[in-house]
Computed example of a mutant assay.
Amino acid sequence: MGVNHKDIVDPNTLLHDSVTATRSGKDEEKPKFGVGQKVKLLEDIVNDGTYPHEKIGTLMMPKGSVGYIRSIGEFLQVIRVYEVHFFGVENVPVEIVGCREHELEAMEDFHDEVQEELEFMRQHREKNYKK
């Protein structure tokens, strides 16, 4: 007697896979957003199973929430994930959510202060230390 797979898997269960559902392949080389940038959520974020303390499908952060990029990471070395800290959102289990680029909209321009400082120092050296 074998195991009946119908007893294990309910074919009517809706699986949430917001990480890979709307994209295949590798993300662009450069991130669209930067650390510290203010962003708005373009769609609801639901638990896709990566947050172990809530059921799959639980609303983690509603569309329209505003937050700031805390860090930028990768999932499976090809999918960029932004760690976004959302403030003042009520009735959600967390304040920090991993988001994809297509789920976010910039609320302000990003200025890479590190790159601006490096460029300033390069120009200063060229001007003051010509050979």
Results as ranks from 00 to 15, higher is better:
74 E>I: 05
67 G>F: 01
80 R>P: 00
39 V>H: 04
49 G>V: 10
44 D>I: 09
82 Y>C: 01
62 P>G: 10
72 I>C: 07
52 P>I: 03
53 H>F: 15
78 V>L: 15
66 V>S: 04
77 Q>I: 07
48 D>N: 11
47 N>I: 01
67 G>V: 03
61 M>D: 03
76 L>Y: 12
49 G>S: 11
59 L>Q: 03
48 D>Q: 02
51 Y>I: 08
39 V>Q: 02
66 V>Y: 01
79 I>P: 02
55 K>Y: 07
58 T>G: 02
43 E>H: 05
67 G>T: 05
41 L>K: 00
61 M>N: 04
80 R>Q: 12
54 E>Q: 09
53 H>R: 14
44 D>S: 07
45 I>D: 03
77 Q>H: 12
55 K>D: 14
47 N>P: 03
76 L>I: 13
65 S>H: 04
47 N>C: 08
66 V>I: 14
52 P>Q: 10
78 V>E: 15
40 K>H: 01
62 P>S: 07
47 N>A: 03
79 I>F: 13
55 K>V: 03
71 S>M: 06
75 F>P: 02
61 M>I: 01
46 V>A: 13
80 R>T: 15
45 I>G: 06
81 V>W: 00
67 G>S: 05
56 I>R: 13
64 G>R: 06
73 G>Y: 07
39 V>E: 03
74 E>Y: 10
61 M>S: 10
44 D>L: 05
68 Y>H: 10
78 V>T: 15
58 T>I: 03
50 T>S: 14
65 S>Q: 02
51 Y>E: 09
57 G>Q: 08
78 V>M: 15
70 R>A: 14
69 I>C: 09
68 Y>V: 12
55 K>M: 06
49 G>Y: 13
38 K>A: 14
72 I>Y: 07
73 G>E: 13
62 P>D: 08
54 E>K: 08
72 I>A: 07
46 V>P: 06
72 I>K: 05
47 N>T: 01
44 D>K: 06
54 E>M: 04
60 M>C: 05
52 P>A: 13
71 S>F: 05
77 Q>V: 07
46 V>L: 11
64 G>S: 06
78 V>A: 14
46 V>C: 12
82 Y>F: 10
57 G>F: 12
62 P>K: 12
46 V>T: 09
40 K>W: 02
54 E>F: 07
39 V>N: 07
63 K>A: 11
63 K>F: 05
68 Y>G: 03
69 I>L: 09
57 G>L: 13
55 K>N: 11
67 G>A: 05
71 S>A: 14
66 V>Q: 08
69 I>R: 04
79 I>M: 11
45 I>S: 07
76 L>A: 15
44 D>N: 15
57 G>K: 15
72 I>P: 03
39 V>M: 04
43 E>R: 11
39 V>C: 08
41 L>R: 00
76 L>V: 13
66 V>G: 01
69 I>E: 05
49 G>P: 09
50 T>I: 11
45 I>Y: 04
75 F>T: 03
68 Y>W: 09
63 K>G: 02
62 P>C: 08
82 Y>N: 04
50 T>L: 13
78 V>C: 14
67 G>K: 00
73 G>S: 14
47 N>S: 12
48 D>C: 06
39 V>A: 10
81 V>C: 08
42 L>F: 11
43 E>Y: 00
48 D>F: 02
65 S>P: 02
54 E>N: 06
60 M>V: 04
38 K>H: 07
52 P>H: 13
74 E>F: 11
39 V>D: 06
73 G>D: 11
49 G>I: 07
57 G>N: 10
52 P>G: 08
